[in-house]
Write a protein that binds this DNA or RNA. Structure first.
Lengths: 125, 125
DNA sequence: ATAACTGTATATAATAATGATATACAGTTA
DNA sequence: TAACTGTATATCATTATTATATACAGTTAT
C-alpha cells in the first residue's frame, strides 16, 4: 500500500487517504479480499493518529469498498459493479439537480431541458 | 413587500429574505425598477439587524436581481433575460456534458438519462 | 442647514461544523 | 499473556457561519 499525504494541500488527511485507497481499489491495484493495512499500522507509517485512518476506512466501508472483521482487520470488498453504478448515478443526479436549479432561475420548461439534452446526445454520437 | 421569517426553520434569516425577494422578482410580483424597502426599514419590520437584511440584498445584487444607488435605495433590476439566459444555458450545457460522460462510463442509454431527468423534475415540483 | 433618511465599511461575538486527537475498551491470535 | 486487531466516547483546536453594533458618508426634504 502506497499512500501519500500532502500537508499543504487543502484537502483533509482523512480525505486524501480515503481517495487514494478508493482509487487503488477501483483500479484493481488492490485485489478483492486483500487485507488492508491496519488502521494503527497505517497511522504509524503516516505519523498521524489512528483515528484519522479509521475515519477514512469508515467512509470506505460505508460506501461498500471494504469490509471489516473486528479484532482481525479490514479487507477489500468484492468488486461490486452495482456499487460503481450507484455512485455514478448519484453524480448524475447531482448534475441534474444543478440543471433544474439553473433552469428554474430562468424559467426554462421541462421540454426545453429535455430537448437540450437530446440535442447534446445527438451531437456526441 | 411581504416577507415571512420562520425562526424555527433551519434556514438562516438572510437566506429566507433572499429567497422570498428573489421569488417575488422572478414572478413579476415586484416590478422592474421598483424600489425595494430600505434595508433598515425592512430590518425594523422584521425586528432583526439591518446587517442581516443587507446581506440578503448583497446576495441578490451579486446575482443581478437588484441594483443599488448608495444613499438612495435598492431597486429591482431590469430583467436582463437575454444575458441571464445565455449564461445559464452555457452552465446547463456543461452539466449535460458531464452527465453524458458519466453515463457512457456505465453504459446508460439515452432513455435511461431522460427518464432520470423526468423523474427528478417530478420530484421537484 | 439640518434632521431624517438612504447604503457602506469595519469589527465583534456567539454558535455550529470540521478535522484531528487521546484514552480506555474488547475481541483475536500466536 | 503479549501483541496485535477494531470500537466507543470524550476532548480540543480551528474554521466557517450567522447575526450583530457602531461609526461613517451621501441624499433629500424641510
Amino acid at each position: 500500500m502506497h499512500i501519500l499525504i500532502d500537508n499543504k494541500s487543502g484537502t483533509p488527511i482523512y480525505d486524501q487517504i480515503y481517495s487514494q485507497i478508493k482509487a487503488q481499489i477501483i483500479s484493481g491495484q488492490l485485489q478483492e479480499n486483500e487485507m488492508l493495512p491496519s488502521i494503527r499500522g497505517l497511522a504509524k507509517d503516516l505519523r498521524i493518529s489512528f483515528i484519522t485512518t479509521k475515519r477514512a476506512y469508515d467512509e470506505l466501508e460505508k460506501e461498500g469498498f471494504l469490509y471489516t472483521i473486528p479484532a482481525k482487520g479490514c479487507y477489500v470488498a468484492p468488486k461490486n459493479v452495482e456499487l460503481l453504478r450507484e455512485e455514478t448515478l448519484k453524480k448524475i443526479e447531482d448534475h441534474i439537480d444543478q440543471i433544474l436549479k439553473l433552469a428554474a432561475s430562468c424559467n426554462l420548461s421541462k421540454d426545453d431541458i429535455v430537448s437540450m439534452i437530446l440535442f447534446a446526445m445527438e451531437g456526441q454520437e
